[in-house]
């Protein structure tokens, strides 16, 4: 899996590529919590993610709640239908903020 971060005004656009699984999700968690520690506002681009397991989703959940605690925004971009089905199973589709594009997520940057 590859993780890269681009500045987009006030936002930190986090591009994930490949599989987010038991081996790689700790890297995602560390990256997102690090950005939040620095007061950045993550926009997580999932468009190039080929697979995300429960550990990846748990990392997103922890980062999202940490952002809320800090009063920072946090959104997901281009969640696949398959990933959305898993999110729906745990009602997380009603929890996260979703956008279709990075541009839509970074309006007002």
């Amino acid at each position: 899996m590859e993780l890269s971060v681009n500045d987009h005004g006030n936002f930190a656009v986090v591009h994930l590529k490949g599989d987010v699984d038991l081996q790689t999700s700790p890297q995602v968690r560390k990256g997102l919590l690090g950005l939040l520690e620095d007061g950045r506002r993550p926009v997580v681009d999932l468009s190039a993610v080929t697979y995300i397991d429960s550990s990846g989703i748990a990392s997103l959940v922890e980062a999202y709640q940490t952002a809320r605690k800090k009063g920072l925004s946090f959104s997901l971009v281009q969640v696949s239908p398959a990933a959305m089905r898993v999110l729906q199973l745990a009602r997380l589709d009603k929890v996260f903020t979703f956008h279709d594009t990075v541009e839509a997520a970074t309006v007002g940057a």
């Binding site: 038991l22 999700s25 700790p26 968690r29 550990s55 748990a58 990392s59 745990a90 997380l92």
Partner: peptide, 19 residues
């Protein structure tokens, strides 16, 4: 079986409890 952070494991387990 994993070396995940305990917080991640707890959230994973709680997610399954929700399910």
């Amino acid at each position: 079986h994993t070396r995940l952070d305990r917080k991640t494991m707890e959230i994973m387990a709680r997610l399954k409890l929700e399910v």
